[in-house]
Structure formats: structure tokens, C-alpha cells
């Protein structure tokens, strides 16, 4: 079904869509029917800039396993880069 489970929040960064790069302001995360992926349901992410219209969007449709792998990789990367940054700061003192 449509699970309707949706999270929306504001983001800061950029994304590259159909017409090039744009400054992203909003994100949606939901688990529902994909438009394109070959799965009944996917974890969908929209990185958006609604002030530029609905087409200012980068869309991801990932299987649940792929989405978890991506989320864990993101967190590991952030944690690791944070640890190294902290180490460098401490070393430079």
C-alpha cells in the first residue's frame, strides 16, 4: 500500500537534478510505492527546493536493505570524519 509514513525536514546543501545543481532546502523520506524501482515498496528520498517548483528535486528509490546500508554508511562516514577531525584538532594544539 501506500504506507503514508513520511518524514519531512529542512536541509542545507546542494543537489544535482534534471536541470543542474540547485540549493536544497527541504527533504522528504518515506516508505511507499516507487515510481521506477522494481520493488513493491521502497525507501524514497526527495531532496527538494520547492521555491523553484516541484521539478527541483532529486529522487532516490532504494530497497529497504539498500536504504539501511546507505544510512549506516552515512553515519559511519560522519562518525569517522568527526573522529579524525577531532584528532587533527587535538594534534595541532
Amino acid at each position: 500500500m501506500c504506507t503514508h509514513v513520511t518524514e519531512t525536514f529542512q536541509v542545507v546543501g546542494s543537489a544535482k537534478g534534471a536541470t543542474g545543481w540547485f540549493r536544497a532546502t527541504d527533504a522528504s523520506v518515506y516508505f511507499d510505492h516507487p515510481s521506477h524501482a522494481m520493488a513493491d515498496h521502497t525507501l524514497n528520498v526527495d531532496i527538494r527546493r520547492p521555491s523553484d517548483g516541484p521539478a527541483a528535486r532529486v529522487a532516490l528509490e532504494l530497497t529497504a536493505a539498500s536504504a539501511r546500508a546507505l544510512a549506516e554508511a552515512i553515519l559511519r562516514t560522519l562518525d569517522e570524519s568527526g573522529r579524525r577531525t577531532t584528532t587533527r584538532v587535538e594534534t595541532s594544539r
Binding site: H4, T6, T8, D26, S28, Y30, S35, H36, D46, R48, P50, G53, P54, A55, R57, A59
Partner: peptide
Amino acid sequence: RVGADVSPDDAAAAVRADGG
């Protein structure tokens, strides 16, 4: 109401983000 000439998936994403 999302607008003319908007692809169905972009319109659906905008509607969802606005709460349906």
C-alpha cells in the same frame, strides 16, 4: 494544483511533502 506540465512523480512528491 501543483501546476501545469509537472511530471506525475514530481507532483506526487510535492503533494506528499505538503501533507497530502
